[in-house]
Design a binder for these strands. Structure first.
Length: 1149
RNA sequence: GCCUCGAUGGCGGAAUUGGUAGACGCGCUGGAUUCAAAAUCCAGUUUCUGCAAGGAAGUGCGGGUUCGAUUCCCGCUCGAGGUACCA
């Protein structure tokens, strides 16, 4: 009776499927246990042996828990939306759904033959409308929610509307867009519906906004930060550029603090927690505003010195009077235009007859720095002066556009559209503080009304500020730059814009920057602080500006040194001549007025208090985490349940969900640049009152455009684990009963590459769903394990490259491949080895003379080129199947091989026992390296149980380790040996005799160890334990039921097929799957004697067997009396004898 | 640069609280069985030294704590992964 794994495995896989052995019930008297795998993306390449590693580990654990009396949920599904299927569709026209369906079939077949205990009745696929209905549903829930910072949770948007209509928004603490204007309850009520919706959109947890995104032209879509590797797209390696686009975003930043806090209560790997913590990037500090000084005060250069205005009376006063007067007496054209500018149409604030610096302008939009002048008759004689005035204003960052009276009166629409066009081109700035509450211009000479806000984690070092640095893209740069510096600044900005992200990354050391000519006012010391621009300051982080403290920050220090700026020292007793002092915990502040003598923590407290007192800033926590962009310009993803009304997004009613992905003819963007969904003419959704046709929602005969973007890859995977609890529910995402029963995932196994993607987004969604009362816990996975990567062992053949390229000897030669041993020998000596020479002379006799004439030096006349050979062409002894290799690819058809012993292999009938041995190297398993090992082949050749045990046996689950198929034979022979224990005279038979003490001891030490190992996820050592047990039982010829029956149960989680078969043959009629795990009984392991190791000065020298009940004194006597002890001591008297009873004896001499 | 993890025979790895370093498996060597091969079984296999019994050294490198360190501490080297001027 042979161990016929092929038949056994096929039989049991069929049995499990037919009997739904692993179907989990949503109610049970047993305690629940939820074991989850990261569901796969079904790629066209199928599985290689690296993929199932984590699945095998989780399957062992799931099966183990079933034996331990748990109701186990162990589901599997497919993350089936994604780029490869879409790329394939673009190339071939095949619908991604078909490709995906085919790939899933392959995956399922491959998974099934490994014998997983998945509950397939709960399978989910993210691309299935019945599944993505709920992804769309969660999106709508997010849209209908805002984050209340007072209650610290997400709430329905209706609670926000209630607050707005009773008290306005000034007291609302919400996670929202920072730039929202303040309004009162009355304002709110008076706002148009449209305006109200616009405001609400800035508070919603998923919102539309113009964001700078990573645009990948090669893929025609935006990418998330974690989809970009080294500045290029993770998939395909295409170039990525920054681009502003209207995009859906998810307000994950609202949860930044809770995402950090939650890490403390989950058992996840520390490195993964660290990378999430770093990604969230919390830093505590303060926002500080620095006033920008007017050029008049800073450099003595300003408008007044330009000769345009003269006189030294109180200019401001005079000008203010004049402005008032002019406002009171407008021209007809001015009145006409003012009406337009004031109307809600432009939705932006303009001022009339306003004072800018020393000039009165007709109209100005301060937040856009746009001045509109209407030229009447009076100005006609002043063209030259106006030109000069425009120049000065433009130097201050204003754009001046002029219209004539005739233009304004004659074609006001054209004028307005020109203004709108200009407005759209200009960046929006917060209005300066150049005016007081009555909209009157403040006296000049104080400041320009501009402030530079900086975020700093070291406000305590504020007295060390000796300059400021702005990012080149900072909004204020064009405004504050002085005319003298304008050219230099422009050149600098151009040069930094040219430097790509990659270059900037590669070249961190080069310090570049330029002075703007402007100065800021130090809020405490009152000193003038020069304002610089430098590309070490990033526009995207904080405010895009820093207060530079060269004595406390190395980058500021380097910048100061490079441009010879002041480096004041504000640390007590610290030398900063060589570099900045960055040890904040141990710093004591000096030369800093009221902060003198204070250590870091006290100084921080004091300065933040002072900053807030003076109104020049406030304490602030800043996060590196950005809101997650949620739009993709793809076809193969979830459609948004969104249409647009007056340009504002509206959620499609829940009753119409799912919004099914429409058919398209082409999967590329449309000709006018819309996403692929723009190609859809018919949306598969039609009801009596509403229907979706031709990209439009028709509701009561009104036509609205639909959202044409689709959701990103992480949408479908962010809550799939909850859906497994209740996958067929058509009424709810998950029922209360189901989610209250299963609660959360007890064990989650998957790769660490998802640390800052899926594993962060899914925690965010879970917290949101928790806030909304949909799920009962706010962390979905109690324990997470990252399985390590399995590396491939690539095989190389060595092609002999002979002669120089120009050499005629190269021509008409067949490629020659030389075996690894000979290559190594040749490379080591640097000379031609005789085996190769002789072989070569057999092939091409003329070659020998050739290389001899060159003095036999290898390097001079040839070298060896390693070439990847497919690992399936190599056997377990690294021997190449020459015929198969030659047939593998056409270019190898006429190859010639020189074997390990120097024989020319294809010649003659007898190969003389020589072999071609390949070289080996461990690399990442990948198709392009021809080192992937297919699990199907392994199952066919060695069986699924062998594959399962071998994958575990390779090493610790979390480590990356190389795959070498040859090792699997050890596991197979173990299974054969195990099988034989149950066989007597070629028949299945066990003895009913009572086991001996020794046999019981083997069994129980195995139970103990295996239990410990599985509990610690140390599956590799549990395999060893089984091998030891089987070896020992074989040695005892043990054939007793009382030992072999529990052994089968112990082994079931790791090798389920053989265990089921043994169990059946032991006379059982039902599956072994839920049989109780054997109970460890310590009594079988009690010993009466111990073989003590005896060490001398810590080195073990010999062993001595002693009864365990001896006292320390008796042990010492016995050891000292031992002849070997005397031999070691050679008459010396030991200084000390250490005895740890039951453990060790150490004699110190 | 910073963060994290790691380094043990020819190879994968074991040693769970500081207590016999190298379990278990692969590979290799020798033997049995066989006409032969596969399969199977037995013995050996860290290094150096020795015919052997034995002896000595040894867990990336250099120090330290300890009766005793692969394990703990300090300082390095190398490798893998993450991150990238985060103010």
């Amino acid at each position: 009776m042979e161990y016929n794994f092929r038949k056994i495995e096929a039989d049991w896989q069929k049995y499990w499927a037919e009997n739904q052995t692993f179907k989990a019930e949503n109610n049970s008297t047993k305690p629940k246990y939820y074991v989850l795998d990261m569901f796969p993306y079904p790629s066209g390449a199928g599985l290689h042996v690296g993929h199932p590693l984590g699945y095998i580990a989780s399957d062992i654990y799931a099966r183990y828990k079933r034996h331990k009396g748990f109701n186990v949920l162990h589901p599997q599904g497919y993350d089936s939306f994604g780029l490869p299927a879409e790329q394939y569709a673009i190339q071939t026209g095949q619908h991604p759904a078909i490709t995906t369906e085919e790939n899933i079939k392959t995956y399922r077949k491959q998974l099934d033959q490994i014998g997983f205990s998945f509950d397939w009745s709960r399978e989910v696929r993210t691309s299935d409308p019945n599944y993505y209905k709920w992804t769309q549903w969660i999106f709508i829930q997010l849209f209908n929610s805002w984050y209340n910072k007072t209650t610290d949770k997400a709430e329905d948007i209706s609670t926000l509307i209630a607050i707005f209509s009773t008290e306005g928004n000034s007291e609302v603490k919400a996670a929202c867009d920072d730039t929202i204007e303040k309004f009162s309850a009355d304002d709110w009520k008076n706002f148009s519906e449209e305006k109200q919706q616009k405001i609400l959109l800035q508070y919603r947890l998923t919102f539309l906004s113009e964001t700078e995104v990573n645009w990948c032209p090669g893929l025609g879509t935006v990418l998330a930060n974690d989809e970009i590797v080294n500045g290029v797209s993770e998939r395909g390696g295409h170039q990525v550029v920054r681009k502003k686009m209207m995009q859906w975003s998810m307000r994950i930043t609202a949860y930044a603090q809770r995402l950090l806090d939650g890490l403390a209560k989950i058992d996840w790997p520390q490195p993964l927690k660290d990378s999430q913590t770093y990604w969230i990037g919390k830093s505590e500090g303060a926002m500080v505003s620095f006033k920008v000084l007017s050029p008049a005060l800073s450099e003595g250069k300003g408008a007044r010195d330009s000769g345009y205005l003269t006189g030294n009376q109180d200019i401001a006063h005079v000008l203010l009077e004049r402005a008032k007067e002019m406002r009171a007496n407008p021209t007809q054209a001015e009145v006409f235009l003012w009406k337009q500018l004031k109307s809600k149409k432009l939705d932006i604030k303009f001022r009339q007859q306003h004072l800018i610096d020393d000039f009165i302008v007709d109209f100005v939009c301060l937040s856009k720095r746009l001045i509109i002048e209407v030229d009447g008759k009076i100005h006609e004689s002043q063209i030259e002066k106006d030109f000069e005035r425009t120049k000065i204003l433009e130097n201050k960052g204003y754009k001046v556009i002029r219209f004539t009276n005739e233009e304004v009166i004659g074609n006001i629409d054209k004028v307005v559209s020109k203004i709108i066009e200009e407005l759209e081109k200009r960046p929006t700035l917060s209005e300066g503080k150049g005016t007081n509450e009555n909209n009157e211009v403040l006296p000049l000479g104080k400041d320009l009304g501009w402030e530079i806000d900086v975020f700093t984690t070291r406000p305590d070092t504020i007295f060390g500020v000796s300059f400021m640095t702005l990012a080149p893209e900072h909004d204020l740069v064009p405004i504050i730059t002085t005319p003298e510096q304008k050219a230099a600044v422009e050149v600098y900005i151009k040069s930094t814009a040219k430097r790509s992200e990659l270059e900037r990354m590669a070249d961190v050391k080069t310090i570049t920057g330029v002075f703007t000519g402007a100065y800021a006012l130090h809020p405490f010391s009152g000193k003038k602080i020069p304002i610089w621009i430098g590309d070490y300051v990033l526009a995207g982080y904080g405010t895009g500006a820093v207060m530079a403290v060269p004595c406390g920050d190395q980058r500021d220090y380097d910048f100061a040194k490079h441009f010879d700026l002041e480096i004041p020292n504000i640390f007590e007793g610290v030398d900063i001549s060589e570099g900045a002092y960055t040890d904040k915990e141990n710093s004591v502040i000096a030369n800093s007025d009221f902060l003198n003598g204070l250590p870091y923590k006290k100084a921080m407290k004091r300065i933040i208090h002072e900053i807030e007192q003076r109104g020049c800033g406030y304490g602030k926590v800043n996060y590196r985490l950005r809101d997650a962009v949620f739009s993709r310009q793809r076809y193969w993803g979830e459609p948004f349940p969104v249409y647009y009304k007056n340009g504002l997004p509206q959620m499609i009613d829940l009753k119409y969900l799912p919004i099914v992905l429409p058919e398209v003819e082409k999967y590329l963007p449309t000709e006018d640049g819309k996403p692929p969904l723009g190609n859809a003419t018919v949306w598969a959704w039609d009801t009596e009152k509403s229907s979706v046709v031709s990209n439009q929602l028709i509701d009561h005969k009104t036509i609205f455009p639909l959202e044409l973007n689709t959701m990103p890859g992480w949408a479908g995977s962010s809550s799939y684990f909850n859906r497994y609890m209740d996958p067929h529910n058509t009424e709810e995402f998950v029922s209360k009963e189901a989610v209250n029963y299963w609660q959360d995932v007890d064990l989650y196994i998957g790769g660490s590459e998802h640390a800052t993607g899926h594993l962060l987004y899914s925690r965010f969604w879970q917290k949101f769903l928790f806030d909304k009362g949909i799920v009962p816990v706010d962390e979905y996975a109690k324990k997470l394990i990252n399985q390590g990567m399995i590396m491939g062992t690539s095989a190389f053949v060595y092609r002999w490259e002979y002669g120089l390229q120009s050499d005629s000897i190269n021509l008409a030669r067949k490629p020659i491949y030389i075996s690894k041993g000979l290559i190594e020998k040749a490379i080591k000596s640097g000379l031609m080895v005789s085996e190769i020479s002789e072989a070569l002379s057999k092939i091409y006799s003329d070659l020998i003379g050739y290389h001899k004439s060159l003095g036999e030096s290898l390097a001079e006349w040839s070298h060896f080129n390693p070439i990847h050979a497919d690992v399936s062409l190599v056997n377990s002894s690294d021997e190449l199947d020459i015929e198969a290799f030659k047939n593998w690819r056409p270019e190898y058809n006429d190859a010639i091989f020189i074997g390990e012993n120097g024989e020319v292999l294809p010649f003659g009938e007898d190969l003389g026992g020589d072999k071609y041995i390949v070289g080996r190297e461990v690399e990442k398993m990948s198709k392009s390296k021809y080192n992937v090992v297919n699990p199907d082949q392994i199952c066919e050749e060695y069986g699924a149980d062998s594959l399962r045990m071998f994958e575990m046996f390779l090493g610790p689950l979390e480590q990356s380790k190389p795959w070498k198929t040859s090792g699997i034979s050890g596991v197979l022979s173990f299974l054969k040996k195990l099988w034989k224990l149950y066989i007597v005279e070629n028949k299945f038979s066990v003895s009913e005799e009572n086991p001996s003490k020794e046999e019981f001891k083997i069994l129980h030490k195995t139970i103990k160890k295996v239990e410990e190992d599985i509990d610690n996820f140390s599956f590799n050592t549990s395999v060893s334990t089984f091998m030891i047990a089987v070896n020992e039982l074989t040695a005892l010829k043990c054939n007793k039921r009382a030992i072999l029956e529990p052994l089968a149960i112990l082994l079931e989680p790791s090798a389920p097929h053989i265990s089921e078969e043994l169990w059946k043959n032991l006379g059982h009629t039902t599956s072994i799957a839920t049989v109780d795990f054997p109970v460890f009984e310590p009594k079988y392991l009690v010993e009466s004697v111990k073989e003590y190791p005896v060490s001398f000065n810590g080195k073990m020298r010999f062993k001595i067997e002693l009864p365990l009940d001896l006292s320390v004194k008796e042990i010492e006597e016995a050891v000292m009396a031992h002849e070997k002890t005397q031999e070691q001591l050679q008459g010396r008297v030991p200084n000390k004898v250490i005895i740890v009873p039951g453990k060790i004896i150490n004699i110190v001499g």
